[in-house]
Simulated assay, not measured.
Amino acid sequence: MLTKLHDDLSRQYGSLLASADLVKVLGYRSSAAFRQAMVRGTVPVPLFTIPHRRGHFALALEVAAWMCRQRFHDGSSTTHDAVTSDGAQQGVTGAQLAQGCTES
Rank of each mutant, 00 (worst) to 15 (best):
M1Y: 08
M1A: 10
M1S: 13
M1I: 14
L2N: 11
L2C: 01
T3P: 00
T3E: 14
K4L: 09
H6F: 05
H6S: 10
H6P: 00
H6Y: 07
D7W: 01
D7G: 05
D8Q: 14
L9V: 12
S10C: 11
R11W: 03
R11L: 07
R11C: 03
R11T: 12
Q12M: 04
Q12F: 02
Y13C: 04
Y13L: 02
G14E: 09
G14Y: 05
S15F: 04
S15N: 14
L16R: 15
L16V: 14
L16M: 15
L17M: 08
L17V: 06
A18Q: 15
S19V: 03
D21K: 06
K24Q: 12
K24I: 13
K24W: 02
V25R: 06
L26M: 07
G27V: 07
G27F: 06
Y28A: 10
R29V: 12
R29E: 14
S31Q: 14
S31I: 13
A32P: 02
R35I: 09
Q36C: 05
A37Q: 13
A37K: 14
M38N: 14
M38P: 03
M38F: 00
V39E: 13
V39D: 06
V39R: 15
R40A: 15
T42F: 08
T42E: 15
T42Q: 10
V43M: 11
P44S: 10
P44M: 07
P44R: 08
P44E: 07
P44A: 07
P46Q: 04
P46S: 04
P46V: 03
L47D: 11
L47F: 09
L47N: 13
T49E: 13
I50N: 01
I50W: 02
I50H: 01
P51C: 01
P51T: 14
P51N: 09
P51L: 06
H52F: 09
R54W: 01
G55P: 08
H56F: 13
H56W: 11
F57I: 09
F57P: 12
F57T: 11
A58N: 05
A58M: 10
L59H: 15
A60C: 05
A60T: 05
A60F: 05
L61C: 05
L61G: 05
V63K: 02
V63S: 01
A64I: 04
A64Y: 03
A64P: 04
W66E: 08
W66M: 03
M67W: 03
C68M: 04
R69C: 07
Q70C: 12
Q70L: 04
R71E: 14
F72A: 03
F72C: 01
F72M: 00
F72V: 04
H73Y: 07
D74Q: 10
D74I: 01
G75R: 11
T78P: 00
H80C: 01
H80P: 00
D81C: 00
A82Y: 01
A82I: 08
T84F: 00
S85C: 00
D86W: 02
D86C: 04
G87L: 03
G87M: 00
A88T: 14
Q89V: 12
Q89A: 08
G91W: 02
V92T: 10
T93K: 02
T93P: 00
G94Q: 13
Q96M: 06
L97C: 05
A98H: 06
A98R: 15
A98P: 01
A98L: 03
Q99E: 12
Q99C: 02
Q99S: 04
G100I: 00
G100H: 05
G100E: 11
C101Q: 02
T102W: 02
S104T: 13
S104D: 08
